[in-house]
């Protein structure tokens, strides 16, 4: 009896098929192969960055049943925190040396992640803890906190746009055949894949991951088995906030300029992504992010006016197919 492996859930492969199908369908529409490669890489890079920002939010929702409307504030804060390093170290960034470039970037990311993680910890204690289980208050409070955070950032850093520089070695593009691929986009894809792989590994191969997944399915049962789910909450919230900060750094560099509205703008996109993916599902969030970004890039090329609402249309289509998102989490 004990030798038999536990029965496994069969993999729901249909959502996985959408991505390659979408890419293939876009190829004849775009027409030229090199443009298609450029658009696809741009879409993947954008999607990876959105995934980094959205994954924390969806996990927080899945585990804690808290929807943080202030998630965008962490994105903004991460990007601004990075400027603390990137602006004084502009020399390192401009230098034509991979080591110095990477050092500056790593330092910026470290500062951003530490700051947003720390703030996430405080945010959970002060803002979220009194309103566990009260959805309406959560929405109102986190929205209010978002406004306060955004305005404080303007008060501290000023309302002017801050220009950001991509490190020297990552500037420009690699030309493959006729397709030009920006180097920074490849970096973004790389970082995104690393984050996804790390998350996947933590969630599926460690005890903490097992507890988190169990908490998403049934929090009360995890508590009844003697685990302190509160600690798990705090940990996931901090990690989620730090991921938002990391996403903010990448996104700010990608845009090459920074305003305090960056978080608010991205919040909408992040929401669409986690709705498409199914609230609480990390895998769904990954596919959703790539879908949204690819569609936005293709639509931007094929029909710029449609691109303004392409994400909403995509969301509507997905919800018509699966009303609770691609990978609905069982209990919600």
């Amino acid at each position: 009896m004990s030798d038999q492996p536990l029965p496994k859930l069969s993999l729901d492969y249909k959502p996985l098929l959408i991505l390659p199908l979408l890419m293939l369908a876009a190829l004849p529409l775009v027409g030229s192969g090199s443009t298609w490669v450029t658009l696809t890489v741009a879409g993947l890079a954008m999607g990876m960055m959105i995934f980094i920002m959205a994954s924390g939010l969806t996990l927080i929702f899945g585990l804690m049943d808290v929807l943080n409307f202030g998630h965008g504030a962490f994105v903004t804060l991460g990007a601004y925190a990075a400027t603390l390093v990137l602006l004084p170290l502009a020399g390192w960034l401009a230098a034509d040396s991979l080591a110095l470039n990477l050092a500056a970037l790593a330092l910026a990311i470290a500062v951003a992640v530490l700051l947003t993680g720390g703030l996430g910890w405080a945010f959970e204690r002060v803002i979220i803890r009194p309103v566990y289980g009260l959805h309406m208050k959560q929405i109102l409070i986190t929205m209010g906190a978002m406004i306060v955070a955004e305005q404080s950032i303007i008060a501290i850093w000023g309302a002017e746009q801050i220009p950001l520089q991509v490190p020297q070695t990552f500037r420009g593009a690699i030309v493959v055949g006729e397709a030009a691929i920006e180097k920074y986009r490849l970096i973004a894809v790389g970082v995104g894949l690393v984050v996804f792989a790390a998350m996947f590994a933590v969630l599926n191969a460690t005890k903490v991951g097992l507890l988190i997944r169990a908490g998403v399915e049934n929090g009360e049962m995890v508590e009844a088995l003697g685990y302190r789910i509160r600690r798990l909450f705090v940990g996931v919230f901090v990690a989620g906030s730090a991921l938002a900060g990391l996403g903010g750094v990448l996104w700010g560099l990608y845009k090459e300029s920074l305003t305090a509205a960056i978080g608010g703008e991205i919040t909408v996109l992040v929401f669409i992504v986690i709705i498409i993916g199914g609230l609480g599902s990390v895998g769904g969030c990954f596919i959703g992010a790539l879908l949204v970004a690819l569609v936005a890039n293709y639509a931007g090329f094929l029909a710029p006016k449609v691109a303004l609402v392409s994400d909403i249309l995509l969301m509507a289509l997905i919800l018509l197919w699966r009303p609770t998102g691609l990978y609905p989490v069982a209990k919600r």
Binding site: I139, F271, L308
Partner: peptide, 26 residues
């Protein structure tokens, strides 16, 4: 509205911001 109140909040936010973009772009 079939699903959850929280869903509604997110979707209205998304639709409203898309509408705002449309109004200023068209």
């Amino acid at each position: 509205l079939r699903v959850k109140a929280i869903f509604f909040a997110m979707i209205t936010l998304a639709v409203a911001s898309a509408f705002g973009v449309l109004a200023s772009q068209l």
